[in-house]
């Protein structure tokens, strides 16, 4: 097997108003199907240990969980080295069901924005209300960041985890670095 690496080899930027880090390899599985159906619920429970999340939410702990992507799509997160196994198990559970399970781990890049100014950095880039009353841990949002599609959630009250296309990883990292550059804070949420 080839030696899998992340898009930017774990790039980091620590000298700004928030810390930007590329997240280590993350298992990601796209599941499309009828989210209200029993086989899908069963496959999700077996793969991630949680129930199908409600629209606009994610149930993620560490590198495992489920994110609600659209009315017929979920993103399953699992440890990178268990992806193949999880996909096979899900396909077994969903045999004969009109559903799709696809390993998209290597098609994506993940970043973490952390620190008290993380909200501010994100708010500069995404047209989303990121006031603490409007966006909090447990929620999940697909949107754009500057000119590229992205999705994010909050692992805790001071950090965001972003998923984007792997081919746009450098763009995303540069974008975050600029938005977090030293002295660029405006304390809008404090």
């Amino acid at each position: 097997m080839s030696n899998a690496v992340t898009a930017l080899n774990g790039a980091e930027a620590r000298d700004g108003i928030a810390t930007i880090t590329e997240v280590a390899l993350q298992g990601m599985i796209t599941l499309r199907g009828d989210l209200a159906s029993k086989p899908v619920a069963k496959a999700v429970k077996a793969a991630a240990g949680v129930a199908v999340p409600k629209p606009g939410t994610a149930a993620v702990v560490g590198d495992s969980g489920v994110c609600w992507m659209s009315p017929d799509e979920l993103l399953i997160l699992c440890p990178y080295d268990t992806v193949a196994e999880t996909v096979a198990q899900m396909n077994d559970t969903l045999a004969g069901v009109h559903a799709l399970v696809a390993d998209v781990s290597d098609a994506r890049a993940s970043f973490r924005v952390a620190g008290p100014a993380a909200r501010e950095v994100m708010a500069k880039l995404a047209p989303v209300d990121l006031h603490p009353d409007a966006f909090a841990p447990g929620m999940f949002r697909r949107t754009r960041m500057a000119q590229v599609p992205a999705a994010f959630w909050m692992p805790d009250t001071d950090s965001f985890q972003i998923v984007c296309f792997r081919s746009q990883a450098q763009y995303m990292f540069d974008l975050l670095k600029v938005a977090a550059q030293k002295g660029s804070g405006v304390s809008v949420f404090q």
Binding site: P55, G56, S70, P71, P127, R141, R142, T143, R144
Partner: peptide
């Protein structure tokens, strides 16, 4: 109406 998100037009 599909996902419930309220956004500005550049997301659409």
């Amino acid at each position: 109406p599909c996902c419930g998100v309220t956004g500005e037009e550049t997301e659409f």
